[in-house]
Simulated assay, not measured.
Amino acid sequence: MNYKLIAVDLDGTLYNDEPAISPATIQALIKAQEMGIRVAISSGRPLPGLFHARDALNLQKYHGMLVSYNGGKVVDTTNHETLYENAIPHELAVEVLKYLGNFPVIPMIDDGNVLYVTDKNAYRVREEALNDSMNCVEVSSLIDCLDFPLIKILTAIEPEKLPDVFKVIGKPYEGILDFVQSADFYIEAVPHGTSKATGLLKVCEKLGIHSDQIIAFGDAKNDLEMIKLAGHGVAMGNACDELKECADEVTLTNNENGIVHTLNHLIFS
């Protein structure tokens, strides 16, 4: 297969547990780009949370793509063109933010630059702001400060509580919003049908390539659609069981240069 796009999830995939991108992984992905293969970082993170990896992989030089917010926003790194953006309607966002008060979750929203929360010291808030390179602003009400397009609503929850909450939290909004688990402690709400796969399809349209020409790497449940879409879907060795079951290949873990291992036999051999 003549692969033309490598799509990589960020946390638990491109990043090892430090978290950092290993020199070997950087070298391999730059080598692939020098061969003419595009790279797309595909993550649940807001756009600024992808910039460190973008710069490390030199994506702006090689016309790479950023698929952020679990596919809710797609940007061309070279000309900064927004190829796609899908926001939650304002009235619906307000309704959902009220609804989340019924659950033991910590909602967080962002405008692409600032992360808004009602308690800076709440569970996972400081980590999220740091990981996404955003300023964290504490407000009395998320609803009152919502004067911008909201692409997703992120909620943090203690891992032991997540399974039971995840079973029920999205039921009133089936067919309207998708509630997805992006980590052991995150549940995210996005417009129905939004996924990393839909974001990558926008990339395919822009580049004039077929989904069969994608190699995709992931580790979590929010990577399922992307792995199924790709011509060669790869689950990291540390991936969840659901992803391993549907992947074309299970590679080494994110701490063992799993991306490099696969690219060596798939495109460099």
Rank of each mutant, 00 (worst) to 15 (best):
Y3I: 00
K4W: 12
K4R: 15
A7F: 02
V8Q: 07
T13L: 12
Y15M: 15
P19F: 11
I21F: 09
P23V: 14
I26Q: 15
I26C: 15
I26P: 04
Q27D: 15
L29Q: 08
K31F: 10
K31T: 12
A32P: 10
M35K: 14
M35H: 12
G36Q: 07
G36H: 08
G36K: 10
V39L: 07
I41M: 10
I41G: 07
S42M: 06
L47N: 05
P48I: 04
P48W: 01
L50F: 09
F51H: 15
F51V: 14
A53V: 08
L57A: 06
H63R: 14
H63C: 10
H63T: 11
M65K: 06
L66P: 03
L66W: 07
V67C: 13
V67Y: 09
S68M: 02
G71S: 09
G72A: 05
D76E: 14
D76G: 05
H80F: 13
T82P: 03
N86W: 11
I88P: 00
I88Y: 07
H90G: 05
L92Y: 01
L92Q: 01
A93V: 04
Y99S: 01
L100Y: 00
L100D: 03
F103P: 01
P104S: 04
P104M: 08
I106N: 06
P107F: 03
M108W: 03
I109Q: 00
D110N: 15
D110E: 10
D110G: 05
D111Y: 00
V117I: 06
K120E: 11
A122G: 01
V125G: 01
V125Y: 02
E127C: 02
A129Y: 03
M134W: 08
M134N: 04
N135L: 15
E138K: 01
V139A: 03
L142W: 01
D144L: 05
D147P: 04
D147Q: 11
F148A: 08
P149D: 04
P149C: 00
P149A: 04
L154G: 00
I157Y: 00
E158F: 02
E158Q: 09
E160L: 04
E160V: 05
K161P: 00
K161Q: 13
L162M: 09
L162R: 09
P163Q: 01
V165P: 06
I169R: 00
I169V: 11
P172Q: 11
E174K: 14
G175M: 09
Q181F: 08
Q181I: 14
D184T: 08
F185S: 04
F185R: 03
Y186I: 01
I187K: 00
A189K: 08
V190E: 06
P191Y: 04
K196I: 02
A197Y: 03
L201Q: 15
V203E: 10
L207M: 13
G208Q: 08
G208S: 07
H210T: 14
H210S: 15
Q213G: 06
Q213P: 00
I214T: 03
F217Y: 07
D219Q: 13
D219N: 14
A220Q: 13
A220E: 13
K221A: 13
N222H: 06
D223H: 03
L224M: 12
M226I: 00
L229V: 06
G233N: 05
V234E: 11
A235W: 08
M236R: 12
M236F: 04
N238V: 02
A239F: 05
C240I: 15
D248Y: 07
E249Q: 11
V250Q: 03
T251C: 11
N255G: 10
N257R: 07
G258K: 12
I259V: 15
H261Q: 14
L263P: 01
H265M: 14
